[in-house]
Simulated assay, not measured.
Amino acid sequence: MKRLILVRHGKSSWKHDLPDHERPLKKRAYRDGRKVAGTFKEFYSPTATLWSSPATRALETAKMFKEELKVPDKMFTIRQDLYTFDAKELLEIIKSCPDTIDKLIIFGHNPAITNAVNSLGDKNLDNFPTTGLCVIDFENYKWERIKTGRTIITLLPKNLR
Score class of each variant (00 low, 15 high):
A55Q: 03
F107G: 12
K66I: 06
T100C: 06
F43C: 06
D99A: 02
T49N: 11
C134D: 14
I136M: 15
V135I: 15
V135L: 14
R79N: 15
L120W: 03
P54Q: 08
A87F: 00
D102Y: 08
V71F: 02
K74F: 13
L133R: 05
N118H: 15
S45T: 13
N140M: 01
N140S: 09
S45L: 02
L82A: 04
E67W: 08
K74T: 11
E60W: 01
L91P: 03
H109E: 10
F76T: 02
E92W: 13
K74R: 12
E42F: 02
R79F: 05
S119I: 08
K63C: 14
R79I: 05
K158M: 11
S53L: 00
S53K: 02
K88E: 12
L82V: 02
I153C: 15
R145F: 09
D122Y: 03
K142N: 14
A116Q: 02
R57K: 03
A58S: 10
N140H: 09
I152W: 04
V135T: 10
K95D: 07
N115D: 14
L91W: 14
D126W: 03
Y141I: 10
A58K: 06
D102S: 09
D99N: 08
E144I: 10
K123I: 12
K158Q: 15
F85T: 14
N115S: 13
E68L: 07
L125I: 14
P157I: 10
A112M: 00
N124F: 15
T77L: 14
R79G: 02
R150I: 10
L82F: 01
I101F: 13
D99K: 07
P111L: 08
E92F: 09
L156C: 07
A116R: 06
D102H: 11
L155V: 03
F65K: 04
D86C: 03
I113Q: 08
C134L: 01
F128M: 03
E139V: 01
E144H: 10
T151Q: 07
T130K: 11
K123V: 12
S52H: 03
C97F: 00
L90G: 02
H109K: 06
T130C: 05
E89Q: 15
W51M: 04
I136D: 06
T100K: 07
V71M: 12
I101G: 10
I101K: 05
A55W: 09
K95P: 12
K66W: 07
E89A: 14
T148K: 11
E68I: 11
F43T: 04
W51D: 03
E92Y: 08
N124K: 15
Y83R: 05
E68V: 15
N124V: 15
T47V: 13
G108C: 04
P129R: 02
D81W: 01
A87Q: 13
Y44D: 05
K63P: 09
D102F: 06
D137C: 12
T151L: 06
K74H: 12
R79Y: 11
L50I: 02
G108E: 09
P111H: 01
P72L: 07
C134N: 05
L155R: 04
K66L: 05
G132L: 01
T61Y: 00
F85L: 12
L155H: 03
T154A: 15
K103E: 12
Y83E: 01
V117W: 00
M75I: 04
G132P: 00
F85D: 15
T100W: 07
Y83W: 00
T148S: 14
A55P: 06
M64Y: 06
K74C: 11
K123Q: 14
F85G: 07
D126V: 09
L104N: 11
F107E: 06
L59C: 05
